[in-house]
Design a binder for these strands. Structure first.
Length: 430
RNA sequence: GCGACCGUGGUGAAGUGGUUAACACAUCUGGCUGUGAACCAGACAUGCGUGAGUUCGAUUCUCAUCGAUCGCCCCA
């Protein structure tokens, strides 16, 4: 009986695992330059935390959560996103009493029980940030631009930033009433999904892709006419400040997010690969005013976003093609003859102490096989040690890219490796 | 949750109701016992996602199930 991997999950190994991990490192370090600190919260929380925060009308909570009773009878859910947990942590630890805003970034696995598709898993990784505590459009822009620049940095040269405003609470309520009013007598001839949305969340009707419905939606009232002057100014300030930084955006007034907690500005990052692959949003976020108070803390405005690491990784693989980074080592030691094995092994351990990435084959194999192994391990250099070399304490160092080979003494080995491998790294970065 | 399509070795894949499941790449061994190639000779699926059924006989037909992919829904 062979065990099967669970639906919607995947194993990452080799370059995929390497690059996923690298993405986390890069995003983390860029977030640090923006003054964000790492926060880690539990993988599961009380179910109610999510129904309260993400929203009972949202599909995520409604039908996509992994929910169960633990042995103590507690109602538990695997996190479908990380914002709610971060908010809870802020309340639990009374972090809101510190200097505001609180700026945290996170990276972790989240769970949603959905039908799997390309770029969509039931357990996937999110990297995100939350800036909590101050209602100031500068923070919105700071956050949007952090996401934007991070994505640019890892290789998305032509990003699409979609942005919209949902207005403040009263603007949004008025707008919803207007929408209901508009769709009231038309809804019966719209698609079943829209009819459902009409009841649960009118805003989402704007998202509908059915052609017939689009015609009706086109003439629906626009949020713009229902925004309070304050909300309009807020949004305009955000746009102006984005312009100042030459961050390009597209205003998309049909952009409404699926999580219930957003207000004011919302945004999504998109990328369409040259081969047409479109994985949907690779990152998305927005401003929210009531989440912290919904979870039992003070009422503080916040803004945040989350990236989907698998989607980002999949697109980068297409963009970078051959250059997509593979695991590698610095040096592969090739030993010839029984008596050189131990000598080589000890040398290898010594080099590892100096933080070189070194490996060797501990079986007896022909030089041919060992060279092939070196290639397969993606080694930069091979160090060939035969009994003659062992006697003389002198080896052959072969550059596996250029095939050049030099003779080098034991004394000079580490210096030479420093020089030659350091150089290799430098060239890689260029 | 709904619809479509698919599932053969490490990989890409051909194929048939019936004794040895083609071909290619990769890998291993030897020819060549110290340098990644080429060439030559061998090796490599007790098996065709899983389970059941039809049949004298199924990888090939039927059903179920699991899984991938795509569309819808939703989302990162």
């Amino acid at each position: 009986m062979e065990y099967q991997i669970q639906r919607g999950t995947y194993d990452a190994y080799d370059e995929e695992a390497l690059n996923l991990k690298k993405l986390e490192e890069i995003f983390s370090s860029i977030a640090s330059t923006y003054g964000y600190n790492y926060i880690k919260t539990p993988t599961y929380e009380q179910t109610e935390l999510f129904t309260r925060s993400v929203g009972e009308s949202s599909d995520i909570v409604n039908k996509e959560m992994f929910t169960f009773l633990d042995k103590g009878g507690r109602n538990i859910s695997l996190r479908p996103e990380l914002t709610a947990g971060v908010m809870r942590a802020i309340v639990t630890n009374k972090l809101y009493a510190r200097d505001l805003p609180l700026k945290n970034f996170y990276c972790g696995n989240v769970f949603r029980y959905e039908r799997p598709q390309q770029g969509r898993y039931r357990e996937f990784l999110q990297f995100g940030v939350e800036c909590v505590g101050i209602n100031n459009y500068f923070h919105d822009v700071e956050t949007i631009s952090l996401g934007y620049k991070s994505l640019k940095f890892v290789g998305f040269s032509h990003l699409i930033l979609k942005i919209n405003t949902l207005g403040d609470e009263s603007s949004r309520e008025n707008y919803k009433i207007a929408l209901r009013d508009y769709f009231k007598d038309k809804i019966s001839c719209m698609c079943p999904d829209c009819q459902r949305r009409f009841e649960t969340n009118v805003l989402r009707i704007l998202d509908c892709k059915v052609e017939e419905d689009q015609k009706i939606i086109k003439d629906a009232p626009k949020i713009n006419s229902y925004l309070s002057q304050e909300a309009k100014d807020y949004f305009q300030n955000v746009l102006d400040l984005l312009d100042e930084q030459s961050i390009e955006y597209v205003i998309d007034d049909t952009l409404v997010r699926g999580l219930d907690y957003y207000s004011q500005v919302v945004f999504e990052y998109h990328y369409i690969a040259s081969d047409g692959t479109n994985l949907g949003a690779i990152g998305a976020g927005g401003h929210y005013d009531n989440l912290l108070s919904d979870v039992g803390g003070p009422k503080l405005s916040s803004v945040g976003f989350a990236f989907g690491l698998e989607r980002i990784n999949a697109l980068l693989k297409i963009i970078e093609g051959e250059k997509y980074e593979k695991p590698n080592i610095d040096l592969y030691i090739i030993h010839l003859g029984e008596e050189t094995k131990q000598y080589s092994f000890l040398l290898m351990q010594e080099l590892r102490e100096a933080f070189f990435k070194v490996d060797m084959c501990l079986e007896e194999k022909s030089i041919k096989s060992q060279l092939k192994l070196a290639i397969r391990k993606n080694a930069k250099f091979a160090l060939i040690i035969g009994s003659e070399e062992m006697q003389k304490n002198c080896f052959n160092l072969k550059n596996l890219n250029t095939q050049e080979q030099i003779e080098i003494s034991y004394e000079n080995l580490i210096d030479k490796l420093d020089e030659v491998i350091g150089l290799g790294d430098y060239e890689d970065e260029k």
